[in-house]
Computed example of a mutant assay.
Amino acid sequence: MFGPVESAAVTLQQDAEARGFLAAWAPVDLPPSVVDRYRAWIADRRQAGMGQLARNVEVRLAPRSRLAWARSVLVLAAPHRFPDPGPPPGGVRIGRVGRIFWMREQDYIQRRVQPHLDELKEICHRLGGRCRDYVEQGPLSFRSYGAGAGLGWIGRNGMLLHPEWGSYMTLAVLLTDFEVEAAPEHPFRCGRCRRCLDRCPTGALLGDGTLDANRCISYWTTQHLDLIPPEVWDGLGSWLFGCDECQEVCPWTPEAERFWEGYEPEPELAHPDLSDFLTLPIHMFAQKYAQSAFERAGRPRMARNALIVLGNTRDSAYLPLIRMGCEDPSPLVRATASWAAVRVGGRQEAERLLRDPEPLVCNEARRALEFS
C-alpha cells in the first residue's frame, strides 16, 4: 500500500507517462560526488565562455537554497531523434546542423512540451503538492537528475544514455515537495566502448563523462559570441550549428522515430541554405527563421558559421558567396570572411579588407594573409 504522498507521486508519474514522456523520480539533493565533480569542472574552466554555468552554482547544485520546500524532482524525457526530412531543392546546403535544432525551439517547447508541463503542474496541485517546472536551460543539472532517477547513465560522451532512446532526449523537470526514495543507480553500460572519444574531431571529450567546452564544436557554433579562432576551424569541419558526432556513433543511439503525432522537423532547419545567412536582410532572416535557434543566435553569428563551413571546403566555387561576407555590415562577418576568402584562394578579397575602417577586420585580414 502506498501512503498519500507516495500515491500522489505515482499518480503524477503515471500521468506524465500517459503523455508520452519517460518519467522517473529523484531526490532533489544531488549526490556529493556529482556536486564535487561539477565544482572541479568549473574550477578547471571547462565551461569555456558559458559564464552562466559558473554563476549561481549553489542554486544549480542545491535548489533548496532557493526553493526550501523542494524535496524531489520528477524527470521527464522526450525523444528528439527525428527522421531526416531531407534537403529542400536548390541553395548551398553543405552545412550540418545538430538534430535538436531541426525544430523551431519555441514552437517545440511552447506548443509540444510546455502544455503538458502546465497540466502536470495542475495535477500536482490537485494532489496537494507544490511544484515548479524547468525545461532544458534552467539553472539545474538535468542530466544528473536523469541519472539519479535511474533513467540511464552518464556515458563517456557526457550525455544521459537511455537503453532504448539513447541520448537524443529533451529533458524537463518538475520540482515538487513530495518525498521520494532514491532510485537504484542504472548500471554503466558503455563497457570498453570508446567510439565517441575516437570520433570527436576536436578531442573535447575527457573520457570521464565530462567535456572540455573550450574544444567543443557545439559550444563554438552555438554559444560563442565573438570571432572563432582560425586554429579551431579545421575541427569544425562542415558543422554549421551544433554537433552530433558523439551521439551518431554511439551504439545506444536508436533508429529515428517520431514523437507526438503531427510534429515533424523542418527541412529548412535541418539543411539550411548557407546563402541565406549572407544575403538576407535582417528582417527577412528574422521572418524566415522565427522562433528557431538560428534566430536566437542572430544573423551575424550564423553568417560567421556559414563562412567557416564554406572556407573549410577549400573550394573556389564558393568565393562569390564569401565575397558577400567581405562586404557585410557586421565587422564579425567581414573579419571571418577574410580567413574564408584566403582559404578558397581569394587573397585579393582579403587584401581589400586591409583598408577596412574596423581594426578587428584589418587585423584579421592581415593575419589571414600572413598565415597563408
Results as ranks from 00 to 15, higher is better:
236 L>F: 07
144 S>C: 04
17 E>W: 07
365 A>T: 08
225 L>A: 12
96 R>K: 13
180 V>I: 06
285 F>E: 09
334 R>H: 02
114 Q>S: 11
279 T>Y: 10
317 A>F: 15
306 A>W: 11
75 V>C: 01
68 A>W: 13
197 L>S: 03
152 G>T: 09
294 F>Y: 14
120 L>F: 09
290 A>R: 15
88 P>M: 06
74 L>E: 07
305 N>A: 03
201 P>N: 09
150 G>S: 00
63 P>M: 09
7 S>N: 15
324 M>D: 03
233 W>P: 00
11 T>K: 13
3 G>N: 10
258 R>Q: 11
90 G>P: 01
169 M>N: 14
367 R>H: 11
216 C>D: 05
276 D>L: 03
235 G>D: 02
21 F>V: 11
155 G>A: 08
121 K>V: 15
128 G>E: 05
296 R>H: 08
252 W>M: 11
52 Q>L: 09
285 F>V: 08
355 R>H: 15
371 F>Y: 10
153 W>I: 05
234 D>W: 10
112 R>I: 14
186 H>S: 13
202 T>V: 08
228 I>R: 05
133 D>N: 12
372 S>Q: 12
181 E>D: 11
209 G>R: 01
271 H>G: 03
118 D>W: 03
274 L>E: 09
59 V>R: 12
95 G>L: 04
142 F>N: 03
165 W>A: 14
98 G>W: 03
325 G>S: 00
319 L>Y: 06
243 C>G: 12
250 C>E: 02
133 D>G: 10
237 G>A: 03
131 C>D: 15
319 L>W: 02
168 Y>A: 06
150 G>M: 06
69 W>M: 03
24 A>W: 03
357 P>Q: 04
301 R>I: 01
336 T>Q: 05
117 L>G: 00
98 G>K: 08
1 M>P: 13
105 E>K: 09
314 R>E: 14
346 G>Y: 06
191 G>S: 10
308 I>S: 08
342 V>Q: 11
165 W>M: 13
15 D>C: 11
67 L>M: 14
344 V>Q: 05
370 E>L: 14
204 A>N: 04
159 M>A: 05
313 T>Y: 00
59 V>A: 08
297 A>S: 15
282 I>F: 02
8 A>D: 11
284 M>G: 05
268 E>K: 00
190 C>N: 04
367 R>V: 04
126 R>V: 02
357 P>H: 02
75 V>N: 04
52 Q>T: 08
36 D>Y: 02
95 G>T: 10
137 Q>S: 11
113 V>K: 05
357 P>D: 11
215 R>S: 01
203 G>Q: 06
219 Y>P: 00
326 C>A: 15
282 I>K: 14
360 L>P: 12
264 E>V: 14
29 D>Y: 04
6 E>F: 04
349 E>G: 10
207 G>A: 01
131 C>P: 07
43 A>N: 10
244 D>K: 15
157 N>S: 08
244 D>P: 12
30 L>P: 03
292 S>G: 02
339 W>C: 07
134 Y>D: 01
276 D>R: 03
